Simulated assay, not measured.
Amino acid sequence: MDQDLLAFIHRVERAETIETLFDCVKDIRRIFGVNHAIYHSIQWHGETFALATYSAEWHEYYGGEQLYLIDPVVINAFKRFHPYNWKSLDWDTRKGRKLLQDAITMGVGNQGLSFPIRGPNGELALFSVSHNADDETWQKFIEDHRADLMLIGYFFHKAARRLVISRDLGDPVALSPREMETLTLLALGLNRATIAQNLQISEHTLRGYIESSRIKLSANNTTHAVSSAMARGLISL
């Protein structure tokens, strides 16, 4: 391994503050010659912890419009285990096309590469880099740097878990098989009547499973319970 890269990984691994870890995220741009880099946990306890080099304008727009709910980059983190090129994702919806065009306009870049990361307790995070480049140049970049970036993503998550995520997670939670089935079907977008029919239970019983799951997960509402269960690795799509 290149000595400069090894030294950078050691910096990430030894980071003692979020500020130091953020400095490392910013240095990704210089080391790999990309426009931006971002590490973020996905909907951790209903919120997102992120370290990103994007502009304040993009942060405000993306968060204010809750674009993570329809962003193919984020959605695919729940479905995939291997790195993915943003060009391989499905942007062929009105909202998806607008999101992609707005990202390009606000300087995120027309290309991107993301690395889904699953931690030892099932937590989910995503490490990404983005840039402005033609397809051929970007494909060469992926071939040259994918392995190094995957390794760096792992060490970013390890440091973030030590500094933030483990503290936020709290005590372990155990859901019953029926509670996990219920939250999984809710995460897939089914309504309560359909879920009750699929599980062959009454809607009253279903409400009981939802409420008990919410209490166990210390969630404010059903949506919060679903996102928390996904973040903890208790359910998956």
Rank of each mutant, 00 (worst) to 15 (best):
D2E: 14
K95V: 10
I42N: 01
R146D: 10
R94S: 13
Q139P: 05
Q3P: 05
R207K: 15
L6T: 12
R161C: 08
T93N: 08
G119H: 02
W86D: 04
H131L: 13
T20Q: 13
H10C: 05
A229D: 00
W86R: 00
L234S: 00
R94N: 08
N110R: 03
A159C: 07
F22Q: 12
L5K: 07
A159D: 00
H45A: 03
I117M: 06
Q43W: 13
A196T: 03
S128Q: 09
V25T: 06
E60M: 08
W91D: 02
A159I: 01
P83C: 06
S227W: 09
L126T: 02
A174H: 15
G112N: 05
R14H: 08
I75K: 14
I31Y: 04
I70H: 08
Y84M: 05
L5H: 05
D23I: 02
T182K: 04
V73Q: 07
L169D: 05
E13Y: 12
R29K: 15
R214A: 04
E47V: 08
P177S: 12
V74C: 10
A231C: 09
I28R: 00
A125I: 02
R80D: 03
S212D: 10
I38N: 09
K87E: 13
P120F: 06
R94H: 08
L67H: 06
I165Q: 05
E19S: 11
H10S: 14
Q101H: 11
D171E: 15
L124K: 00
T205D: 12
T223M: 12
A77I: 00
I9K: 04
F127I: 04
H45D: 10
S236Y: 09
M1V: 12
P83K: 13
L89Y: 02
